Simulated scan of single mutants.
Amino acid sequence: MLQRIQTIYLLLAAAVSAGLCLFLPYGIDKNDLELFAKEDFFLLGMFMGSAILSLIAIFLFKNRQLQFVLGRINILLNFILLGVFVYWSLTVSGETKVSEKGIGMIIPIISIVLLVLANKAIRKDENLVKSVDRLR
């Protein structure tokens, strides 16, 4: 059923991953130019992969177990993306790519929180269905 709360959480996670990454800079380079994810193929692929996984999970409402697993995979993907951002921000001393941090580095954190809330709601629905089956 598409009118569940996890659908809203998954839709928000997809919007955050796909929408905000295009408009919020994740850093500033040594020439004071803002760095966006749309300019880096790897970051854009990771953000769009996260958004696509969220959208696929929305339409798997009949298979809650698979929906839950896709949510976990999406959380893992966002942790990897967050790790990449942390690595780039910690190598600031060499001025390799990112000179200053931008607001776009918190996008994976927002997405992780929304995905955890969605997985919690999916688990709650699964437990409700199991408890109703026990009464029959």
Rank of each mutant, 00 (worst) to 15 (best):
1 M>S: 10
1 M>A: 11
2 L>F: 08
4 R>Y: 06
6 Q>P: 00
7 T>H: 15
9 Y>T: 00
12 L>W: 07
14 A>M: 02
14 A>C: 00
19 G>N: 02
21 C>A: 12
23 F>Q: 02
24 L>K: 01
26 Y>C: 07
26 Y>R: 00
27 G>F: 10
33 L>C: 04
36 F>M: 06
37 A>D: 15
37 A>L: 07
39 E>V: 03
40 D>S: 12
42 F>V: 15
42 F>S: 12
44 L>Q: 09
44 L>I: 10
44 L>C: 11
45 G>M: 08
48 M>A: 14
48 M>W: 07
48 M>F: 10
50 S>I: 14
52 I>W: 01
53 L>K: 03
57 A>N: 13
60 L>K: 13
61 F>T: 07
61 F>G: 07
61 F>W: 11
62 K>Q: 14
62 K>S: 12
63 N>C: 04
64 R>Q: 10
67 Q>L: 05
68 F>M: 11
68 F>K: 08
69 V>F: 07
69 V>D: 03
72 R>G: 15
73 I>L: 11
74 N>P: 04
75 I>N: 01
76 L>T: 08
78 N>I: 04
79 F>Y: 10
80 I>Y: 04
82 L>V: 01
83 G>S: 14
86 V>G: 04
88 W>A: 08
89 S>E: 04
89 S>L: 14
91 T>R: 06
96 T>N: 09
97 K>W: 13
100 E>I: 01
100 E>G: 06
101 K>C: 12
106 I>E: 02
109 I>K: 06
111 S>H: 03
113 V>Y: 12
115 L>H: 02
119 N>Q: 10
129 V>D: 11
133 D>H: 09
134 R>Y: 10
135 L>E: 10
